[in-house]
């Protein structure tokens, strides 16, 4: 699911393995968006990493191999020191099937970007499916969306050749199903414009989490986070600026 979520944004990337788990940071080709992923060791039934290692992987190749796994298979990832290949083993404990695949690794000279700690002006958590719906609906009308956070709520608006549209979400607490709540923490009003093409792309991570958190400040990249039980996928998107 993680590979599915990011494979259309980045093609080749390093999986950085160390004591804390497997991490990845990569920009898209146009250098407008950045994806950062972390799978913590606690999320693995077994995890061993004797030495920090970067596994340079073509995500399309990895995806091809992962398609060979069944949903409930146990997956083991293995790489030696200075590896040429990443080994994947899929096991089905019920019928004792073991599938073994190797994918070739590549040297990827990937620069890491320092992401400054930011006190965001607005932090909004909403159901991830709702966010996906809004992005898809608005993309049919325009290529850009204005996101405005005020004490009234968060407003997504766009205008295109056929007309215009806007969706406003107000803070709303669902006691029975907290994952359906919308929470808005506002330090100061925020108004920014983003390319919908990227937002729709990020929504491929919707299956990772029932909620998504948008963190916004004026004139800095939008942070979109899908939290998992033992890790996260974060997308950063640079804003568009006015004419």
């Amino acid at each position: 699911q993680v590979v599915d979520a990011i494979k259309d944004l980045v093609q080749d990337c390093n999986f950085d393995c160390n004591d804390s788990g497997i991490a990845l940071q990569a920009m898209d080709n146009s250098h407008v968006a950045l994806v950062a992923m972390h799978l913590k060791t606690e999320g693995f039934s077994q995890y061993r990493c004797d030495r920090n290692i970067a596994l340079g992987v073509n995500l399309a190749s990895l995806q091809k191999v992962l398609r060979a796994a069944q949903n409930e298979d146990l997956l083991t990832l293995k790489a030696e020191d200075a590896p040429d290949v990443l080994s994947l083993v899929f096991e089905n404990s019920e019928n004792d099937r073991i599938s073994e695949y190797d994918i070739k690794l590549m040297d990827i000279d990937q620069e890491h970007l320092g992401i400054p700690d930011t006190e965001y002006g607005a932090t909004v958590t909403l159901p991830s499916a709702e966010f996906q719906r809004i992005c898809r609906d608005l993309m049919l009308i325009s290529e850009s969306v204005g996101i405005e956070a005020t004490k009234e709520g968060i407003k997504f608006s766009c205008a295109g050749d056929i007309g215009s549209g806007a969706v406003t979400l107000r803070q709303n607490a669902n006691v029975d199903k907290p994952e359906l709540s919308t929470t808005i923490e506002l330090q100061e009003p925020v108004a920014l414009t983003f390319s919908l093409k990227y937002l729709v792309n990020f929504c491929k991570a919707t299956g990772l989490s029932s909620t998504v958190t948008l963190s916004l400040s004026n004139e800095v990249p939008l942070l979109i986070e899908y939290k998992m039980e033992h890790g996260f996928v974060r997308f950063y998107l640079a804003p568009k600026i006015g004419d």
Partner: peptide
């Protein structure tokens, strides 16, 4: 893209 900022104008190389 006109008006689209790049991510590297916000995040510096380490």
């Amino acid at each position: 893209q006109a008006g689209q900022k790049g991510i590297m104008s916000f995040f510096q190389k380490k």
